[in-house]
Design a protein around this nucleic acid. Structure first.
Lengths: 341, 341
DNA sequence: GAATTTTTGAGGTACGTAAATCAAAAATAG
DNA sequence: CTATTTTTGATTTACGTACCTCAAAAATTC
């Protein structure tokens, strides 16, 4: 049987009250007595029953998710996953809410975080914007004893406790490796379709992609980056234009959103002249394109995993427990048409 | 505030005892009364507090892991993950033990399962051998009300409740797709290194691999399968022999264990003449080979995830709770040298 | 050694649920 | 209508921990 506080009391020859004082760091225990209790705890291998403790404390976890209002499939899916988690949280003693802020607006994000801080939740998960004001604000939250997890997009050199998202440099490198190997290896020219170079994830993906191509596939020429601001219409126009101008264009890496437009532009091409295409995020449209051969590979981050991981980490931090790094690592999924879920 | 049993009693105008009878399916409640209580439960949105319930019941989960004694890195890692989970389970009310059985021995596996059944655990996870006697035995365990999860290797058409492992046909197809695209596309010859065609995973991987190659890359010729019985020494000899005999061999798919031998055989080759190599399971040696370019891609199943998923599922089944399919899907990881964890 | 402060013990209540007992009430059978 | 059975209520204890109070004991100060 698992030892309880009663066992410790008996074993240490003290009362239950004293054990409680030691366990919960309350004052009024002599050093010698404290030591006796601690020895008993160690020798019996006592671990506090968190469920019973939370029940007694009437503890409830309160977490806030600060998400950007964004109409791309990924962000919509992310919000849906948070809502699903909220739906399931009825059974657990967890209250979560979603706070929506305008996308790419650091000021609005900071304002939202300040508001969140006011009602002192146990933890906050946010899709970060990598900006000094945001970093400073996160610092304040952390100082206020609130657990902070960045979601999808990280914050450089800040006091966030955890990042639930993929390594975007590695993702870009992976795309570069696949691109280099999928190409026919003669006179290759590759285009990159991005959302905006203002966003950290996109910058990092591009960085990784370019570095692998230049290191391992120096024969590949890279065209100027197309910035389509994650807009399908703009993306379509840009890709059409690029295909027209560069007849030998035989590779496209789409590292942002707006893939619907890219796919529309590609569908017109004959299968033989189709470039190798690698895109990000598995959505209805990229999935379809993968199946019918318009896209060759999709790199994906699983929004559901990210949300569940964020919640696990917030809970662990709130309890002062360690996090299982291996479990919480968000992986870069590589989907070909043969391993679709 | 979350409604409690007291709220239900008040709302339904019955006593606590009656609510308890309804909630726990005890006899002695008239249909009309039962209905009143159920309506109160529905209208208040009551969900039983599992932590409190388990505390009151003094419930402990007892699970058994039946693992093959096998000296390859993957199985050693799997066992280590189970041990790690056992180590963490101190905090939860969960008792788990590991039962080791000789590998590839259906009789021994059945005997072990029978022994396990004798002390009536709440759940059993096993690395299955796809064999009629095993299927029948699993059937008996399930009938005895024990939750059954197959781990890594599944059981066809049986009454196991869940499979915590990858789709091996999809894994083989993925390997085939990557192989077809990585090859130079002229006069390609590919060798397959397997453990044994007696094992379901290996058969399925081969099946998927061959079907993709014949569908999408018909110009690729496939040499007879080398069965190295997951032994590094045998694998090394076979690969050396194949490389000697078939000068144009430019692709190798290693779908089983014993990669250490494969890598030894490959290291002797000049980088230019090195075939495209795709292997399974990320271990110290395959990881090293990936980094130095001896292996081009590694397909992996995360043993840690499989074990944690198995435990979550066993617990859910023991509680009669639904399983979150999206969370429990074990993914086929594709590792290139650029996205190593 | 007395007065004061600090430490410890004993005991209770609470959290939300399970499970039991026994008596009271209601329904059904004869 | 009585006897019997079934249903319901009231109450209690328990799970393991937290947190509180009050008194007793021990240590410290003067």
């Amino acid at each position: 049987m698992k030892p309880t506080v009663h066992d410790i009391a008996r074993h240490a020859g003290v009362s239950l009250a004293t054990v409680d004082r030691v366990l919960n760091g309350r004052a009024g225990v002599r050093g010698i007595t404290r030591q006796k209790v601690e020895e008993a705890i160690a020798s019996l291998g006592y671990v506090r029953d968190l469920a019973a403790a939370n029940l007694a404390k009437g503890r409830t976890y309160r977490f806030s998710f600060v998400l950007p209002v964004n109409d791309n499939s990924f962000m919509i899916g992310l919000k849906r996953e948070v809502e699903a988690a909220i739906g399931r949280s009825a059974a657990e003693r967890t209250h979560m809410d979603i706070i929506e802020v305008p996308a790419f607006d650091a000021g609005a994000l900071v304002a939202a975080l300040e508001a969140v801080m006011a009602d002192k939740p146990d933890g906050v998960a946010l899709v970060a914007i990598d900006e000094p004001r945001v970093r400073a604000c996160v610092e304040r939250l952390a100082d206020a004893g609130i657990a902070i997890v960045t979601l999808v997009s990280d914050l450089g050199a800040s006091s966030r406790h955890h990042y639930a998202g993929i390594d975007n440099i590695a993702a870009g490198r992976t795309a570069g490796n696949l691109m280099g190997r999928f190409l026919s290896k003669v006179d290759d020219r590759v285009g990159v379709l991005a959302g905006s170079m203002m966003v950290r994830d996109h910058r990092e993906r591009l960085e990784g992609f370019l570095s692998v191509l230049s290191e391992d596939f120096p024969q590949v020429a890279i065209l100027p980056v197309m910035e389509a601001r994650d807009d399908a219409g703009v993306a379509e126009a840009m890709v059409r234009e690029a295909l027209r101008r560069h007849v030998g264009l035989n590779g496209i890496y789409s590292l942002g959103a707006g893939n619907r437009g890219l796919i529309r532009a590609l569908r017109d091409l004959a299968a033989e002249t189709r470039p190798v295409v690698i895109a990000h995020e598995l959505t209805t449209s990229t999935r379809e394109a993968l199946v019918d051969g318009t896209i060759d590979a999709v790199l994906n981050q699983d929004a559901g995993h990210e949300v569940r991981s964020a919640i696990r980490v917030l809970k662990a931090k709130a309890d002062g427990l360690p996090v299982l790094a291996a479990q919480e690592r968000i992986r870069i999924d590589i989907f070909l048409k043969d391993n679709l879920p």
